[in-house]
Each structure stands twice: as structure tokens, then as C-alpha cells.
Design a protein around this nucleic acid. Sequence first.
RNA 1: GGGCUCGUGGUGUAGAGGCCUAACACGCCGGCCUGUCAAGCCGGAGAUCGGGGGUUCGAAUCCCCUCGAGCCCGCCA
Length: 575
Amino acid sequence: MNRSYVGDLRSLPFNSPVRICGWVQYVRDFGRVVFVVVKDRTGIVQTYVSQDDTALLAEAKRLSPDDVICVDGILRERPEDMKKPDVENGDIEIEAKQINVLNRCSPLPYDVNGDPSDITRLKYRYIDIRHSGVLRNLQIRSRASMAIRNYLAAHGFVEVETPYLTKYTPGGARNFVVPVRQQPGKFYALAESPQIFKQILMISGLDKYFQFARCFRDEDLRADRQPEFTQVDLEASFIDEEYIYGLIEGLMKQLFMEVLGVEIVTPFPRLTYDEAMSLYGTDKPDLRFELPIIDFSENFKSSRFNAFKSVVESEGFVKGLYWSEPLDRGALKALEQASTGSGQKFLFISKAEESFLTNGPKSVLVEESWLQLGTYVLVAGDSERALQFLGELRLALAKHIGLIPEGRYAFVWVTERPMFEVGEDGNLQAAHHPFTMPNVTSPEEVLENPLKLRARAYDIVLNGVEVGGGSIRIHRPEIQEAVFRVLGLSDEEIEERFGFFLNALSLGAPPHGGIALGFDRLAMILAGADSLREVIAFPKTKSGLCPLTGAPSELFRNQKEELLPVFKAAMEGGE
RNA sequence: GGGCUCGUGGUGUAGAGGCCUAACACGCCGGCCUGUCAAGCCGGAGAUCGGGGGUUCGAAUCCCCUCGAGCCCGCCA
């Protein structure tokens, strides 16, 4: 007999023989009748053993959770008063005729119905996947990658794999490093992204490339960051920004329709970087709700509230949020608590008919004639940092007053980021990456006033999460060289690090550009999960540990012998 | 690299100087039970409180070091 998935039983006729294979979810033993709930990747179903078959009854009593079994039986409709509409498959059951135990399961190491710690879940990841939503999430992730592959293939993109073992490039993310036994002193770097290779593929004439690329970055981790992660990396030749926007908008439309059945409206709104910062205080605004930042500077020019008035008078600003409902004292307290340690000057005012709440001097503020009923969140300052702080308050306030709708997917393009920014050491850094085309066409203009330049770069933001970013690339060597100069690289450094690449640019490079989508984050949003770990089969902890395998581990003796010359030569040679 | 929080049976938590001979729930073992829905009821086993050092008459509890976990900042072109 062929086995059925539990999820397919409903399509079979009642009273027909069925076979299901899976894991024991629960055993409910009533002495002379036993219920065994069986689970496979599609769901759960109740099987039962009646008193008539004493041998089978004894067998069923010996089952424990997560025993691997195969049940042959008859698919039955449950008696009317035994139906449970709120339980999965609660109106059907299988009368077991034979139970084969394929493998006994030892007592489970943790309570799968409880709230295990992350490290416990990862140590027994197979149990975790079996019992949590991860099983479902992995299937969603798989459907997402299929949908993306189909879409890109239909649009003429060619999937090409690029090396993970590659050359170390200083600047940007720290690379993981791999010793090379055959060449003492030499190391590969694990690719932090396929950036150079995909540009080389454009120069090669491939025209349209994509890849699900694993990227490796040896940086300190966060809750939403893994040392290895997956990007949908793509690049195309003879295109401009509009091509990328259209391509990705179509991709998202198809992706959300195929995976979730959700209609995404295109085209996506666009904001320049400056607009995003001034309206929402962030370069990745959550547009599921409005609540824009408003300039209140004028209102404080003639105010008696001197702390803010003085800021406006010294060419600063007072900006803030306005919400038409007043907040209670508890809510204001919570906002204030979220603000301590920000180092910013802030003020909360909540005005209702009969009461007036504020964290500032009440008597002075009550006289402000422009105040309307509702809530004001105000920040005084003169820096981008003050705007960012307001952006954080915008999110906090929206969460507090329940302004963020469920099941809404708000995409937005953020464009025209500055090309360079001043780094901590006072030197200029590329805001996106140094292969990004600036909004000028000659090397002279690049060198003239680099801080004024805008990058032809774009980020795609979904619900306040940056899910992708890319740019039109530099395809002319003299402009690429000028950008390297601005970044403070000497002729020798340029030659040593990027000589091969400049050479390639001078040997027939077409205009090109592309984008990389953070596939883990996309999968997370599609699955409705609140952490990347819920959509990655085998994630690592924040210290880069894999509790399942115990990686990373020390070298074995034979490895030490083989690798000693590599490290010895490395410490003696190089820079 | 910096700041904050946490570590107690297999799992999740309570206990915050003596009431601890360490409590509770789930799980586990034994028993009862013919229709349950994470079944119920009765009984039982299981932790020297992450590790090391110190303070104290007395430490799970206070202090120092260390290991591990979590959150944040730096970092992630």
C-alpha cells in the first residue's frame, strides 16, 4: 500500500484502507482504548486502537512521543459527538489495524510544548524543526526560492556560481580566512559577497546573471545577523535604475502571490535618502503607517519654553510627531523610558479636554496656543542623530498606539544616498560600496567635491526592513580610479588590490548594475517569523557557535602538523 | 572592544544570608481507567543551585575571577 501524507487524508474516501508514516505526537491511554496522534511534515491525525485487538492494544500502550511508526488502518469519519472542529483533522481518525515501530525514541531532552532556550533548541535542532514552526518556515522558504528562480529564469537571467574561496580585500566587512596547505603563508578569504565576480561576468558578456549566494562576514553578530547568510544576487548589462525597479517590483509581485497569495501593488513608492531621513528619521522607513515627522521650529520661535527656543535660535530645529489622540501617563512614561540615555532634548505633550500631560514644565507649555488635542513627541537638535532618534520614537509610538497593521506589506525604494561619508578616522568611505556609479560622468567631477556626490544606488525597504540594495556600477576605469583616489588609496594600493579589476574595466566593460536581496530576511517576512533563526535550518548563536555540531572546534593533531608551516610563514611574511 | 541582564533536577521556572533536608509545572518510572484532544487520577525516582576562589558561625543567595547565554553600542563598504 502506498503511504499517504496526513494532510492528504481528507481527499480520500471514508472507510478506505490507508497507511501513514511519521512520529508519535501523543499517546492517550484509557486502558481499553488508546489514541495515538501521528504527525508527519504535513500535519497530525488521530489513530485509535479498540479493545477488540488485545495484541495491538498492548503495542499501542508501549508507544512514546516521537517513536517512528507506520500505521496501517481504515480511514473513518469520527462519530458526530467526537468531532473536534478546533483541532487539526478533528473530524476524521484512523482505526489502526497494524502498527509497525520503525524506531523507538528515547525520552525527549526538553519539553517540546514549553518554552526552551535558544541554545537548547539549536542543540537538538532536529527535534526543534520537527516540533516547531520551522518545518513550515523551511517549506515557505523553499517555495520562495523556487518562485524567484522561475521569475528570473523567465526574464532571461542565467544562474552562475562564483567562488566562495577568494581573495582578501581590505575595507568593508572582515573576512573569514582559510589557510592554504599547499602554499605556506597564503590564505583564501571567504567571499563576503560576489560583487567583483558578478561585475566580471557582465564584462564577460553574460548580460544577465543571478545566484543564490552564501555570504560570509566575520563581524560581531546580532539577533538578526548570522556569520553566513544568503543573498539573491543579480546583475544586468545595458540597463539603468528603472530596469532594476521594474524587475524587482515584478519579482516581489510574483513572489508574494505564489507564496502567500497576496497581491502586491506596483510600482513601489520612492523616497530619496534625504526625504526618508527628514520624513521618517531613518533610511529604512516603515510605511505600513504614516505618522511623518513634522517641523515645529516656527512654533517655538516665540515660545516661553526656553530649552527649545534657544535651539531654534541657534539654527537648530524642533521636529516631532503628532497624533490626534491623547496618551495616558503610563504611555508617556514608557516613551520617556525608551528615550533615556539618548542624549537628545525631547519633550512629550499629551493634551486632552480635561487634562494636560507633559514631561516638561507644564505651566509654560499650557500657554502654547498652537497646541491641539492629541499627542506631541518633540525633539530639538541640529543633527542627523536627532532625526534618527525621532525615527526611533516614531516606531515606538506607532507600536504603542497600535498603528501598525497586520498582513500589510509596504515596499519603498530609497534612492540617492550620498556617495561618500566621513569615517571615524576622518577619511572618506564609500556609503554603499566603491564600485557604485556616482551621479556625475567625469573623473574630474568625482575628485572636485566628493561629499556633494550622490550614489546611483537604491535600497528596497519592506515594512522598515532593508531587504535589498544595489546600484548602477562604474564601468569606466578612469572613474573607478578616481573613486579609489577619493577613498585615499595610493597608486600602489590600487594596483595591488584592484589592478586586475581596472584592467577588466578597460577591456570591454558594458554599462551594468544590479541588486542583492537579503533572502533570509525576505523568507522571515514571508513566514511571518520574528527572527532569522526561524527560517534558517541550522543557524548559529550570537557567538558563532553551532550547538548541534559544536563548531567551531580546535585543530586536530594531524591538522596542526599540516598547518603549522602555513601559519608560521604567514606570521613571518606579508605586511 | 564597551555597557546591561541572566545561569537552580532532562526541560521551563520559584527561592535573593539561617524558614532549603531546595519548591512548582512538564517530562520520566510504576499503577488505575472504553472516546480522549497537550486526557484524568494515585504513587515514585531525579538537582551539593555553570566552574573556581573569597567573605561569613552559616552562601543557591554577598564579593572577585572564569565559562556560557541574551539584549544594546561600536562593527556589518
